[in-house]
């Protein structure tokens, strides 16, 4: 019941991890919105970004390593889409999903091969991994930066989708894939753009997440990936604000549950929440009404 006496550390941790979940959840929700595909490899792209950072920072200065990690992760997301999903564009939806699961395992096993299965220590990024004190709660600075950066990125993303040509194309493709193709929208480049944005946000999320929890293993992407997927479904899959709010709710609730002393059930809670939401509101908080065109 420590939460009731000193709620601040738990709220801080919750908001911070919620922001990191949000950045990953956007990737799930955007891809689903456009392709109706649950990209199971997304959590592993997040993990691989962490691995890139570990290996690159060993030989390059951080000022160079960080942008390079972002670029390589974006490239990886793009390549995964081109190699594993695009050839299956007209295949049954299930085949693409299986392909996504395959990519997920491929990435995990590659990471296992290159690390020898051992946890890698994520490098300390100066300034953001410094310890700071906020109203008596001691934490890393990244905890404070994460929510701000997340909100800023989300606003930028929403503006991008509302006000640019490619954003408009994205909305059109999400609305009706076939018709927008007929209208001359280059569906493939729209989809690539989606994967690029998703991977970029996952890379940023990974930098923030691993700065806080500084150990990267081949399975590091598993749990956060699953939780972010839950967050995306919770907020209404396909909806960006929904995914962000869902992620914050899950991050905060999880930490409050731990603070109440029910540490054993913190993960069970996340998944129980998913079941309840699906029973009560199958489309999620902000989900569009089911418009399956049969």
């Amino acid at each position: 019941m420590q939460f009731l006496q000193t709620p601040l550390p738990y709220l801080l941790a919750g908001i911070s991890v919620g922001g990191q979940y949000a950045l990953i959840a956007i990737g799930y929700t955007m891809v689903y919105g456009i392709l109706r595909l649950i990209n199971f490899a997304h959590g592993d792209v997040f993990m691989v970004a962490g691995m890139f950072m570990v290996f690159l920072s060993a030989s390059l200065p951080l000022g160079l390593a960080i942008p390079l990690v972002l670029v390589i992760t974006v490239l990886l997301g793009f390549l995964i889409e081109r190699a594993a999903y695009k050839p299956l564009r007209d295949a049954p939806r299930m085949s693409v999903m299986i392909s996504a699961i395959g990519v997920s395992y491929l990435l995990q096993n590659c990471a296992l091969y290159f690390t020898g299965g051992l946890a890698k220590v994520f490098p300390q990024i100066p300034w953001i991994s410094d310890t700071v004190e906020v109203f008596g709660a001691v934490t890393k600075r990244v905890t404070l930066i994460t929510p701000v950066l997340t909100v800023a990125l989300v606003i930028a993303l929403v503006l991008f989708i509302r006000h640019t040509k490619i954003g408009m194309a994205m909305r059109a493709v999400a609305k009706d894939f076939e018709t927008s193709r007929l209208m001359g929208i280059k569906v493939n480049s729209v989809i690539s753009a989606t994967f690029i944005i998703g991977s970029f946000l996952a890379a940023v999320g990974s930098l923030l997440y691993f700065t806080n929890y500084a150990s990267v293993t081949p399975t590091s992407g598993g749990m956060p990936g699953l939780k972010c997927f839950v967050a995306a479904v919770f907020g209404g899959i396909g909806s960006i604000p929904g995914a962000v709010i869902g992620a914050f709710i899950i991050g905060i609730c999880e930490n409050i549950i731990k603070g109440m002393g029910w540490t054993t059930f913190s993960d069970a809670f996340t998944f129980a929440l998913l079941i309840v939401i699906l029973l009560v509101k199958p489309t999620g908080l902000f989900g569009e009404k089911a418009t399956d065109k049969v």
């Binding site: 709660a137 054993t264 993960d267």
Partner: peptide, 21 residues
């Protein structure tokens, strides 16, 4: 006495619990 689940990497709350207790 507290327990953490498999795959957990967020120990913030556990450390905070120990401090607060």
């Amino acid at each position: 006495h507290e327990e953490f689940p498999d795959g957990n990497s967020d120990f913030t709350s556990y450390v905070a619990n120990a401090k607060a207790a």
